[in-house]
Amino acid sequence: MEHSDVDPTAQVEDRDYEAALRPKRLTEFEGQPRVREQLGLVLDAARHRGTSPDHVLLSGPPGLGKTTLAMIIAAELGVNLRISSGPAIQHAGDLAAILSGLDEGEVLFLDEIHRLSRPAEEMLYLAMEDFRVDVIVGKGPGATAIPIELPPFTLVGATTRAGLLPGPLRDRFGFTAQLDFYDAADLAGIVAGSAAKLGVPIDSHSQGEIARRSRGTPRIANRLLRRVRDFSQVKGHPEVTRDVARAALELYEVDERGLDRLDRAVLDVLTRLFDGGPVGLSTLALSVGEEIETVAEVAEPFLIREGLLVRTPRGRVATRAGYAHLGRRPPAANPALFD
């Protein structure tokens, strides 16, 4: 089997793939220009004052760079980063143990912060405002609250569902950033940078091809690049060209608009079996052989964002664009339904 002539030192082990491709500094972070500028001001001001920056809340869909930004914040401040998540903290004692182990100025990253348990959430209020936690010793009337002072720290919270955050918790963050989906030009830049780190020869046309099919998400762009790299190496192509990229993405069932097998299956059964809808989510999920949560959280948001499907009070409906994407015509019986 023939392989491309690539410097072995540029190759990255799969287990280190995500970490190797993450930007390390704010200046290296592609896209999100508004968030980058605002966050840079927050960090610069804190450095000038010699204090820890305000607590930071990062919200947005998965794969847009929330964890990466948390790592960058710690790197820019020159401090350690402690990482945990809302689902992992089931009791207030779990959170107290994490907080009491922080050193001055450190950054604590809590992913999926909206899934914190209520007792831990109550404890976090006091820790964020007064840098103190009260540990309850004993039970009943004899219980005693022992205050533990905490060193100043910066909490970076990440959430994919900002609407589920309680108001009191959201208000305690000094800076809130909403990450948006990336445009194709920014994603092409990310693909180019990742290809350089992986040692993958790739032309600009292929970068754009991968970017267009990445659903506005850097994580997906890097994943598709990885699969295109595999295809290119196994098939013996010295460089990733547009034809190579297209052939690889076709093999992995990612079409020109970024729809994968599940997306097309949802559109297919909706247009073919149910005449475009409306149809209930549970029926739709059963028809494609997937869990309701998978269809609702993985396929449906992208199909709606692309204008291929809409939610109505009676159920899901395919749009004219959805029919057109599959090369089909909407039924003539009720054309207004698809407007």
Rank of each mutant, 00 (worst) to 15 (best):
A19N: 02
G105I: 07
F131L: 00
S214W: 14
I202R: 09
A324W: 00
G157D: 10
L95K: 06
R219A: 15
T160W: 06
R212H: 13
R261A: 11
I146E: 15
V200A: 06
L108N: 12
L26G: 10
V191G: 11
S204Y: 10
V35T: 08
T241M: 07
P141D: 01
T283G: 01
T294E: 07
A247N: 00
D203N: 15
A97P: 04
D14Q: 02
D111N: 02
T217R: 15
G193P: 10
R161T: 13
V133E: 07
G60N: 07
S117Q: 06
L281E: 07
T68M: 11
K139E: 14
R223L: 09
H3D: 08
G93N: 13
E291I: 01
A185W: 00
L224M: 02
R246Y: 00
R320N: 12
A88C: 09
R246M: 11
M128W: 09
P152S: 12
L337F: 04
E106C: 00
K197P: 00
E209R: 11
F231D: 04
H114R: 00
S117I: 03
H205L: 14
G60D: 00
L281H: 08
G167V: 15
D16T: 11
T154D: 06
P151F: 04
A247T: 11
P335H: 05
L251E: 12
D5V: 08
P62N: 06
L43D: 04
T68S: 13
V266D: 05
E28K: 03
D275C: 03
V310I: 15
H48D: 06
E104T: 15
D275M: 09
R261D: 01
P119H: 03
L267S: 10
K24P: 00
R328H: 03
E37I: 00
P168N: 12
A245E: 12
R115V: 07
R272I: 02
A74W: 05
L77C: 09
L165W: 13
G65V: 04
A332G: 05
V288A: 02
P168Y: 11
G163D: 14
D186W: 07
D134R: 10
A10E: 08
P87E: 10
R115C: 05
V137Y: 10
G157R: 05
A145P: 00
L308S: 01
L308K: 07
I89K: 12
